[in-house]
Write a protein that binds this DNA or RNA. Sequence first.
DNA 1: TAGTGGTCTAGACCACACA
DNA 2: GTGTGGTCTAGACCACTAG
Lengths: 262, 262
Amino acid sequence: MAESPSLPDLDPISDRAVFRQIADHLREAIERGQLAEGDKVPSEAQLMQHYGVARMTIRNALQVLQSEGLTVAEHGRGVFVRSHPPVRRLASDRFARRHREQGKAAFIAETEGAGGKPSVDSIEITEVKPSPDVAERLKIGPKDRTVRRSRRYLINGQPVETAISYIPVEIAKGTQIMQPDTGPGGIYARIEEKGYRLDHFVEDIKSRMPLRDEVRALRLAPGVPVFHLVRTAYASDGTPVEVCDTVMSSDAYVLSYELPAR
Amino acid sequence: MAESPSLPDLDPISDRAVFRQIADHLREAIERGQLAEGDKVPSEAQLMQHYGVARMTIRNALQVLQSEGLTVAEHGRGVFVRSHPPVRRLASDRFARRHREQGKAAFIAETEGAGGKPSVDSIEITEVKPSPDVAERLKIGPKDRTVRRSRRYLINGQPVETAISYIPVEIAKGTQIMQPDTGPGGIYARIEEKGYRLDHFVEDIKSRMPLRDEVRALRLAPGVPVFHLVRTAYASDGTPVEVCDTVMSSDAYVLSYELPAR
DNA sequence: TAGTGGTCTAGACCACACA
DNA sequence: GTGTGGTCTAGACCACTAG
């Protein structure tokens, strides 16, 4: 039984829009914990009655909270305070050689270590000409060809990340990189077998709201942004050997990096 | 003169909501470049006429695009395709000792290097008991006191980041850390003068939609998420000497990290 | 079946921008 | 002044959920 969160009345003097005042009241109730995670927000009808306003005004207010990522609406059930799932911490040593030597790809090793069930689906392998951005990162020409591996990562069945790797064909050719199953240690192990010793990675991270397709692929709730991370892998002679373009649900991850003070 | 982007008609068979179809049409026009950055989207009246629907239906469609960060509405002028400002790349060597030795704090050095005019305002210094999270990161008790330095960073007058540092009082006491101007090289230079040699930093990064106050402090457009970054600085004996809690406009930054392959 | 949110209509008045 | 978006009303019908 959800007890009502005792909302204040409207301030008739304020020139702040009514729907914003209502959104403020609800937001404060959430921040104070008066409405806890998972709690049901009063129904539109109840709020209309409490504030004496039209339904669209209430819906505008609820829309504000939803776009702030504070609530989710469930058709036929009600509006609920978002509960934040436990997040995974992506540490900066996840590409350590010792993991590859143990035959584990980064995602698998890390997820199992945290007690989740990792899986991968939607694996597609094609040969494509690189986009200008990818070509620049790989230091290759716009007509050179690359192997494009795209896939989706899931934890306990919940999609958390999509990734697309681009590897120059000369490196990928004749290796298991062209197969759906890349074998023990994943792509990076295959690249090293080919004679490229991995030296370091550079990760560029942006944050933005998801595109429509990303909402679908990651089953994102409204108001949840994504990390857009592009990683470039360099061999010890400075050659870029792979670019990996990933989109991650910000709900599922905390990215963690260690920097030397030098 | 904004030429009209030749929008398709509604699909009368589709069971996709009308406002979503309209949002899709506009989104596709933007993605195809038919509506370029800065272009004016057809007015609500024009769209009503084109599609033959009520105004609220059009407004719902425009609302979708706005919450995706694709457009901004300007009262009295129109709705425009968002133009993305040039972003700053925050590199992982920004805390290199050589910068401190040159007397530059990280933000100043980096911004000037990129040709921008850095400034800092809203500097506040208080002594507080740490939050549980900060206490844990600093490995101190909940009753130990810390110096809290909050400030806002701007580039060419545009706010891009707010930051709050917490330093244990024993470390900050009697140094310029307690003053608004921390002196050449900033906080970290003062900490090192006190005998703590900085060894490394750990940065934890989340992405989320901004709170109301953050929208105001950073003048964020609708549909723009923030990076929430917490950095902990460690001395060479492993002692945490500072925690810095920052919120950054995702419009203004690309975070860039280099990882060794080890 | 009753209650919930999802969509849509057809108006109204207001504040802001610009010529 | 005219056109723009911002807010609000008062209805309507539909689809989904749950008892």
